[in-house]
């Protein structure tokens, strides 16, 4: 699947991938391979790079690429599309890790996903803060406004009904130490919970453990309704 994607990469897509790689390198402060570029003709990559420099999207310093403000904006939306797409395929279709990655590489380009579509997906997924691998998803306008026009697929537990089973998709707590405490009790993404009550405090059951927690914490636990087996 990975090969299929790379073979029919157009020139614009190669440019996109260079921007993505520059972003990734800045994010972690070191070199990191871009899966989509590994099979592309190096000459093409070079040509694309010099065009990006000409357009003022990147600067080349001692052989390293640095994003200019304009390029940074473009790279941010690429990353955002990529990681949202990863979320989408992981949550909705339960695809395997490689399939998720390959799909995301295809979907990140602006030609494929329009800004409106991206906002739709983002709202649909409940404005997730990170991709399935735990990497940050740069927030878009829709996250800042937090518009819930689309009935999201992934919703905070606090908006769900008592007496149903839910699968935890991600947890976005107010502060990080809470994540550790929750994970110690088995409240982790992927776990299935049964919501027993919401008042006076939330009580949920995971496996045979009953856990009580605040509404504020429940607001940060994002779930999808679970019927039988996996998926939705």
């Amino acid at each position: 699947m990975l090969q299929e994607t790379t073979e029919d990469l157009g020139f614009d897509e190669i440019k996109d991938h260079i921007l993505v790689r520059a972003w990734l390198n800045q994010e972690v402060g070191k070199e990191e391979p871009d899966h989509c570029l590994s099979q592309v003709d190096p000459l093409e990559v070079e040509r694309a790079t010099s065009e990006l420099v000409k357009e003022g999207l990147v600067q080349q310093k001692n052989g390293c690429l640095k994003l200019a403000t304009k390029g940074e904006n473009q790279a941010r939306s690429l990353i955002r599309r990529n990681r949202l797409a990863e979320r989408l395929f992981a949550v909705v279709f339960n695809l395997s890790e490689e399939a998720v990655r390959a799909q995301a590489c295809r979907l990140e380009h602006e030609k494929v996903l329009t800004p409106e579509a991206v906002e739709g997906i983002c709202s649909f997924l409940g404005h997730p803060p990170s991709c399935p691998h735990g990497r940050p998803i740069p927030p878009g306008d829709c996250c800042r406004l937090f518009v819930n026009e689309v009935r999201p697929l992934v919703t905070p537990l606090s908006l769900e009904e008592v007496g149903e089973n839910y699968r935890i998709i991600f947890i976005a707590p107010k502060y990080h130490s809470l994540l550790e405490r929750l994970s110690g009790l088995g409240v982790i993404p992927g776990a299935t919970l049964h919501l027993l009550q919401k008042r006076p405090s939330y009580v949920l059951k995971i496996e045979e453990t009953e856990i009580a927690l605040d509404k504020e914490i429940a607001e940060g636990i994002y779930v999808v309704r679970h019927t039988n087996g996996h998926g939705i």
Partner: peptide, 12 residues
């Protein structure tokens, strides 16, 4: 590298 705390990811 991660948006989520490392201890949480390791727990996970």
């Amino acid at each position: 590298y991660f948006a989520e705390p490392v201890s949480f990811l390791m727990n996970r």
